[in-house]
């Protein structure tokens, strides 16, 4: 989806949405087929084909707006991401345990603004999901037009904590762009990394 299409879609209040083509729905169909197999605990060809038929009927009856994939997926980066995710979710959980037991009502937090680099709905959603589970924040409000997330962050005690939280969200986005962002986003990210001193994610 181009930027103009995205803006139009975001501001369109008529309720009419773009529809996904069959090609755009292929990953969704494959996923639904695997869920069917998992639920039956049977991955035999016949069962999978039946699952695929049901998925086809479902996506025809319950139309979804198109999910635009970037056409890029780095398996190695995905493995690194999964490892980092498991480690971080463990750390975050123990942090919440510690805060709940020892700080309790004295815990302070902050609501911060993070403007993401990416313009893709899928990546913004992914970043939102991952940051809810990992560094101690969740999304309070989203501005889709500017890819801006408003986050509630637990255990922020001063201004330095605010900047640290912002940096950790930008780090999550960086990992996700390296995993599944478009080529343009990756090139921009690399350009930004090789030109130090340029700050991203500041409040506009």
């Amino acid at each position: 989806m181009t930027k103009e299409q995205r803006l139009k879609d975001a501001t369109d209040e008529s309720g009419a949405r773009q529809r996904a083509t069959l090609r755009q729905e292929l990953p969704l169909l494959a996923g639904m087929m695997l869920v069917w197999g998992a639920l039956w605990q049977d991955f035999a060809i016949g069962n999978l084909v039946f699952g695929l038929l049901i998925s086809l009927v479902l996506v025809r009856v319950f139309r979804l707006p198109p999910v635009i994939l970037s056409g890029r997926f780095n398996v190695w980066r995905a493995a690194v991401f999964a490892g980092a995710f498991l480690r971080d979710v463990t750390l975050a959980s123990f942090e919440v345990l510690y805060l709940a037991v020892f700080r309790g009502p004295r815990t302070t937090s902050a609501i911060i603004t993070v403007t993401l680099r990416t313009g893709s709905d899928l990546l913004v959603t992914f970043v939102g999901h991952v940051l809810t589970l990992v560094p101690g924040s969740y999304v309070v409000e989203v501005d889709r037009r500017t890819s801006t997330l408003y986050l509630h962050v637990l255990n922020v005690n001063d201004e330095a904590g605010v900047e640290k939280a912002r940096a950790s969200v930008m780090m999550i986005e960086e990992r996700l762009i390296r995993m599944m962002g478009t080529k343009e986003e990756l090139a921009e990210l690399n350009a930004e990394k090789s030109a130090p001193g340029k700050e991203h994610g500041e409040t506009p």
Partner: peptide, 16 residues
């Protein structure tokens, strides 16, 4: 039980 308000209690409901 221990966190001060709704917004911070939500953290307890998601991560651990």
């Amino acid at each position: 039980l221990r966190f001060p308000d709704l917004l911070s209690r939500l953290h307890a409901a998601t991560k651990p």
